[in-house]
Design a protein around this nucleic acid. Structure first.
Lengths: 165, 165
DNA sequence: TTGGAATGTCAACAAGGCTGACATAACCTG
DNA sequence: CAGGTTATGTCAGCCTTGTTGACATTCCAA
């Protein structure tokens, strides 16, 4: 299983073997990526779905349910189940819209911000270590490949996040 | 929100904002990463768990159940449920060990290899496009950061995979 | 020969996806 | 203003995939 593209002009990185290693790296890395928050969530009887909701509400305070649905890519029933428990537990506040009263605008309460910070710090800490170990140029490449791997719609969401701050 | 580390000597890539963008990029990219196989799996009434089993059996033919458990990081009950359906459906063959007859060695059948190839090709195709778009240096950085993000044990598994072929 | 390892299996449970159906309120348009 | 559309919530039921706990079998190795 040597080069698969004979006469390859520096396309070694596109061999099946390199692609498979990339796939496996994504698999193993994603496990590490979620491991620390998972431990914290378990203490609160929450799951990754709660983490995602809390994360994106923190990033876009006042976002609507519909907007969140688009970002998370789940059904409203799934999201609603999670939001309901977060509101009940006093981590998220849901305010009726000012202009359009059908909409609900979502905010983290102080308690919600505390949990968000704990989760985020755990995840950022690992990311920081990985970034530091790999260096700025590797980080740039990392981000480029990830962005190229997204579906167009996901990339749109991501581009907005990059731009709006 | 400018630099968070005043007097920063080129550590801009370690700002909280950059870390958060990395976190979100992982989230969105992983969705893309699994989207294509998920579509194929749905046609066969299988899930991601089946994909993972088929993938790693293909990569290490003859691997034991216990070895697979270590790589996948799930309980034997979870894995067993998946393996059972794969064996019943004739995608995986489970051979009693030659030396140690307690062990089962797992192999893909021809049918299993066909499915594996379809899944793998879908995923590799996306990865290939991303790699091509980002270029070889970005790919190197991508892999460095992912590897640094793994837990030590996952990194060990990954290192073995890199080395053994 | 016996302890422990490797495996399989049963049962029960939970999270978190999904679909489908339906209710309500609010908005918008003709 | 009437009727259609939109945003949200909610109920019910289903599936996958993870978990624990208990127990049986097989068989290697000390």
């Amino acid at each position: 299983m040597g080069e698969q593209r004979p006469g390859g002009e520096g396309l070694l990185f596109l061999t099946d073997e390199q692609l498979r290693l990339g796939i496996e790296a994504m698999f193993f890395a994603y496990r590490g990526f979620t491991a620390d928050p998972d431990r914290i969530l378990a203490e609160h009887a929450y799951g990754r779905a709660h983490h995602r909701a809390v994360h994106f509400i923190n990033r876009s305070p006042g976002t609507t349910v519909n907007n969140l649905l688009g970002i998370l890519g789940v059904t409203k029933q799934s999201l609603n189940r999670v939001l309901r428990t977060l509101v009940e537990d006093g981590l998220v506040e849901s305010r009726v819209g000012h202009r359009d009263k059908r909409e609900r605008h979502l905010f983290l309460t102080e308690t919600g911000k505390t949990l968000e910070h704990a989760l985020s710090e755990a995840q950022r800490s690992r990311m920081r270590a990985a970034y530091r170990a790999a260096g700025p140029e590797a980080v740039a490449g990392f981000r480029q490949v990830l962005e190229a791997m997204m579906d167009p719609e996901q990339r749109r969401h991501f581009a907005i996040r990059k731009g709006e701050r």
